[in-house]
């Protein structure tokens, strides 16, 4: 029944063959397949391993000029999709939708704030060359969750801020993103703020930004659901 309603919607699913599936950090994978359509960095895609199961939505993390789509996912042990996805090998089939959504940055100066795998849409923007005037703030629990750290450090330099809540090493800000933002004397009021992550992080950071005088019309959020 579920496949019926999925196919009726314009984000219907089609089968693709996996070209790669690499564990880049404990329980976190990057899965890839050939790109046959264009997309805007920041867009999402629906994925399922079984067309009878409801698909889940993931941000694309590859650049829009790359030959393959890349998607970053962490394995949720009680989940239906990700434990299976983690075991899949190149050549096997998954079912994906066309890219859609409008979580896209314009040329304005912006702060892009993410926790965990919420970094994916911003990584896509960076790899697509669409991250001028922008600062990336990434929050994680442990230092090995700073996915793509070497690349980001090289690309962004001091526009790449890492907040690590459960480990300290003198390099990363020791604490949560909210603590980092609270400690900032002033945030640029003319900037846009893009948030991506779990609902609670999004509402907490948004409230904090508003409290610090950022107009809510300049805050955009991509939520996981």
């Amino acid at each position: 029944m579920q496949s019926t309603y999925q196919n009726q919607h314009k984000h219907g699913l089609k089968a693709v063959r996996i070209t790669g599936n690499e564990e880049i950090s404990p329980n976190v994978y990057v899965i890839s397949w050939e790109r046959t359509v264009g997309f805007e960095p920041g867009q999402v895609i629906k994925i399922t391993a079984d067309p009878q199961e409801p698909p889940r939505i993931y941000s694309i993390c590859s650049g829009n000029k790359e030959d393959e789509f890349y998607v970053l996912f962490n394995v949720k042990p009680a989940g239906i999709l990700t434990p299976r996805l983690a075991t899949m090998k190149p050549g096997e089939e998954i079912y994906v939708s066309e890219p859609y959504g409008s979580f896209s940055c314009d040329e304005s100066p912006a702060h892009c704030i993410a926790t965990g795998t919420g970094i994916a849409p911003f990584y896509s923007m960076i790899r697509s060359g669409k991250f001028n005037n922008k600062t990336l703030i990434h929050g994680v629990s442990y230092a090995n969750q700073f996915y793509f750290e070497d690349f980001l450090q090289k690309e962004l330099g001091n526009r790449y801020i890492r907040c690590c809540s459960r480990e300290t090493n003198g390099v990363h800000f020791p604490g949560r993103i909210t603590e980092y933002l609270l400690g900032r004397d002033e945030l640029p009021k003319g900037d846009k703020y893009y948030l991506c992550g779990q609902a609670l992080m999004v509402v907490e950071v948004r409230d904090l930004l508003i409290q610090k005088g950022i107009p809510y019309g300049q805050i955009y959020a991509e939520i996981f659901f």
Binding site: A199, L200, V203, R206, D207, Y216
Partner: peptide, 17 residues
């Protein structure tokens, strides 16, 4: 229990999901 949708005007959103 809670909500994932994060609407700006909703109290339930403040507790996350």
């Amino acid at each position: 229990v809670g909500c994932k949708m994060g609407c700006l005007f909703c109290m339930t959103a403040k507790q996350g999901f």
